[in-house]
């Protein structure tokens, strides 16, 4: 029971979904499964959210280093939970949408979460700079190709690229940086993309078959090693 049932479920569900593509009366089954998944995910949140609370409470209890921040995390979590689930301070009351304008839930989202999200996202500007610097020091031929292509595309998207090569006569306009950038995007870049994408497709097909046929079963907590 413990070992076979999960494997049979995977086999059955996987095979069903593969065939549903070819059988019109079953064509909506994929959407249904997505719906099931969404519902399962809500239940699973009891486990994830429970884990979050447990971890921080245990830090607090044991007075671990930095336990003060755990208090803040817990307060934030329960605050959102309460104002959101009971729609406290929602101008439209319990019947209104939880994200209604002016509700405490939505206001917290815009004043606290949005700036945090966009700043974290914006850290990328610095990290892109440091990654580029590292790429610059790379010595092998592959890294050089990456760098040259990146440099041309980058220049091609700025007015500077235009200025730099405006002296190139029009009969060789291909060599002007913006045109070169377009050519790279449309030709070698496209070729590389295709090879990667086709490879991914085959990789997914093969892995899916391994999972469905039960050849690959580590995820189920069944390693036979």
């Amino acid at each position: 029971m413990k070992r076979q049932v999960p494997l049979l479920i995977t086999l059955f569900v996987g095979t069903l979904l593969i065939f549903s593509v070819f059988i019109p009366p079953m064509e909506n089954i994929g959407e249904n499964f997505t719906l099931f998944f969404d519902i399962i995910a809500v239940f699973a949140f009891f486990l994830g959210g429970g884990n979050l609370v447990r971890v921080h409470i245990s830090k607090l209890r044991r007075r671990k280093k930095d336990y003060g921040y755990s208090i803040i995390t817990l307060v934030g979590f329960f605050f959102m939970l309460i104002v959101g689930l009971f729609k406290i301070g929602n101008p439209g009351g319990i019947a209104a949408s939880v994200t209604a304008e002016g509700s405490i839930f939505q206001t917290t989202f815009t004043t606290v979460l949005i700036p945090l999200q966009s700043t974290m996202y914006a850290l990328l500007a610095f990290f892109v700079a440091s990654a580029s610097y590292r790429a610059f020091r790379a010595k092998n031929r592959e890294a050089t190709l990456l760098l040259v292509a990146a440099f041309i595309i980058l220049l091609g998207r700025t007015p500077f690229g235009m200025m730099l090569t405006s002296w190139v006569p029009d009969s060789f306009s291909v060599l002007q940086v913006p045109n070169l950038a377009i050519w790279i995007m449309n030709s070698p870049n496209l070729a590389g993309q295709r090879a990667i994408i086709i490879g991914i497709g085959l990789g997914v097909v093969s892995m899916s078959l391994r999972l469905i046929l039960g050849v690959e079963r580590t995820y189920l907590g069944e390693d036979r090693g």
Binding site: F127, R134, G203
Partner: peptide, 21 residues
């Protein structure tokens, strides 16, 4: 590309799915 720039080894696309096998 970002993994290639910042990591020591990168599994490209298909290699990710083949890795476990």
């Amino acid at each position: 590309p970002f993994f290639i720039a910042a990591c020591d080894f990168t599994l490209i696309g298909e290699e990710l799915f083949a890795a476990s096998a």
